[in-house]
């Protein structure tokens, strides 16, 4: 039954070559932990991607309960945390996942850096990687505000004050981020929510596609 359905689709869309291309590419010996235990350093990138998937999923489920509004944001988080079964765990997964994603991404970057894997011909992929790094930090910064508790607002206040100090565009940049020249409030929260939930994920997906495409195109860098 399933086989027939697959054949029916395959006949029209030729899906087999697509997944065979992914499935059959050869993985070199030097990244295989079965041959060298030290090859575990190559798993950090994959783990980062895995946590990003978890973040996407848990984030989607969190929005079932969350409202980006200064009156209700905290109440909805409190409700999720205390009244919804497993709500605490889903929020904890998103919270700790965020930290772990940054740790894993940092380790992945160190691996690439110390191995000199960014050298020709992989310069472009390294630049995409640094952009991904910045996007992940932006995720952390915007996500920190969303529960609208004391530490969220106070830390964001400091962050925005730093942004205000930036040369030339300081004032404009701050207003652009907080939605108001002086108040950190309703508009700040909706902006941070939109950035965290729509803009950054879109950028992240785009860059990840490029990142992976280049890896497939250029292969993993050779052994040292």
């Amino acid at each position: 039954m399933l086989k027939k359905l697959y054949d029916w689709i395959d006949e029209r869309l030729e899906v087999t070559p697509m997944w065979r291309d992914i499935a059959d590419h050869e993985v070199p010996e030097h990244v295989n932990p079965a041959h060298h235990f030290s090859a575990f350093v190559y798993c950090f990138g994959g783990l980062t991607f895995f946590i990003i998937l978890i973040q996407f999923l848990s984030g989607m489920f969190l929005t079932l309960y969350y409202v980006p509004d200064i009156e209700n944001a905290w109440k909805s988080v409190y409700y999720l945390q205390n009244e919804v079964a497993f709500g605490k765990i889903v929020r904890a997964m998103h919270h700790w996942g965020a930290s772990l994603a940054l740790v894993m991404m940092f380790l992945h970057m160190l691996r690439v850096y110390f191995q000199g894997a960014y050298k020709k011909p992989r310069e472009l992929n390294w630049i995409i990687g640094v952009l991904l790094f910045i996007i992940m930090l932006a995720f952390g910064f915007t996500g920190y505000l969303l529960p609208w508790d004391m530490k969220a607002v106070m830390a964001t206040k400091v962050g925005l004050q730093i942004a205000e100090q930036s040369p030339l565009i300081g004032g404009v940049l701050k207003t652009l981020l907080s939605g108001d020249p002086t108040i950190i409030g309703a508009l700040t929260l909706t902006r941070f929510f939109a950035i965290h939930v729509f803009f950054l994920p879109a950028a992240l997906i785009g860059l990840l596609v490029l990142h992976f495409y280049m890896i497939r195109k250029q292969g993993i860098s050779g052994p040292l």
């Binding site: 999923l57 489920f61 999720l80 919804v84 079964a85 497993f86 709500g87 765990i89 997964m93």
Partner: peptide, 8 residues
Amino acid sequence: PMIRAAID
């Protein structure tokens, strides 16, 4: 955990 929270 996610689905359990969603169907709460």
